[in-house]
Amino acid sequence: MYVHLDVVYAHRDGLDLRMHIIQPSGDASMLGWKQAFEGQHPCIAFVQGSGWREQALGSAMSYLCRFARRGYVIAIVQYRPSVLAPHPAQVHDAKTAVRWLRQHAGRYGIDADRITISGDSSGGHTALLVHATDGSSDLDAEPQAGPLHLSSAVAFYPPTDLTLMDHDDAVRDLLAGRRPSEDPEAARSASPAHRVDRGRRGPVLLVHGTADEVVPPEHSLLYAQAAVEAGLSCELVLVDGAGHGVWPALFNTEVADIVDSFLSSVAPQPVGSTALVGFEVSPGLREGNAQSKLP
């Protein structure tokens, strides 16, 4: 692997927006520079969660390196914090980052036709909104730039319905100082579960811990149900006993295997295709039908 740190992809509100890019590679000392970096790889644009505040951009890097070893280019994406720029700035930034990756695909060994948007917590929320509005001018600082053509989305424990988070100060800050009860229309507009439609978009994978007290798993269940009703492809992984955050129960080898399997199977989806696959993940990786758990 080769890690490109603090790659600037945009400048907004006086802030250089950066990425950490993890690129699969061979041993350049043995193969030579050109051979070590030859080939194109699928890319995961990962939006690091932070409660929409300032991100610790490298906090999930050790886990994400597992995917670079499996042949993915990883781009860990910085967005503007909500104290500097409230919603939809974070979505604007993530879309710009994806376009930048596509424009520089050759330099970093990226297969531009296989870019997945991903993220955890607030980053997962951002990723789902990017996915939901791909192909439209909505929530886009560069509407003239056209669709992102994302192949899929993977969100870890994402808030999907902000109307359920009225007492969360991070949500208040995201909505420019208004709580969801004070502006329910804005809260719904900023909620991925209220934006699922039958658009021509790639499949979604959700991963959520059953013991998450910060963003309860109902958020992913609500999104999955909305996806089923809209006729979109969505898989839901419930990790038994896992809480909120990167370590230790949620970001493990078993979940990495499931994510890798999902990404490896992604193919163009015909409009109107429908699938809900649910998993209860325990040390034995028990599989079950999550649809029966939907509200």
Rank of each mutant, 00 (worst) to 15 (best):
V207F: 05
L221W: 06
A224V: 01
V228I: 08
V228S: 10
V215A: 06
S220L: 02
E229N: 13
A227M: 07
A224H: 00
Y223C: 09
A226Q: 15
V228E: 12
A211D: 15
P217R: 04
E229Q: 14
L205Q: 10
P216R: 14
A230W: 08
G202R: 03
A227V: 02
G209M: 12
L205G: 07
L221E: 13
E213W: 14
D212R: 12
A227Y: 07
G202K: 03
V207Q: 05
V215K: 02
Q225N: 07
V214I: 15
A226W: 11
G202Y: 03
T210S: 14
G231F: 00
E229T: 07
P217K: 03
Y223A: 12
L205R: 05
G202V: 05
E213L: 15
A226M: 10
L205A: 10
T210N: 09
H219K: 06
V215M: 02
Y223S: 09
L206I: 04
P217C: 14
Q225E: 15
G209T: 07
T210G: 13
V214R: 11
E218G: 00
P217W: 11
G231R: 11
L205F: 13
V207T: 06
E218S: 10
T210E: 09
P203R: 07
L206W: 01
E229C: 02
L221V: 00
A211C: 10
H219V: 03
D212C: 10
Q225G: 01
P203V: 09
V204W: 02
P216H: 15
Q225K: 12
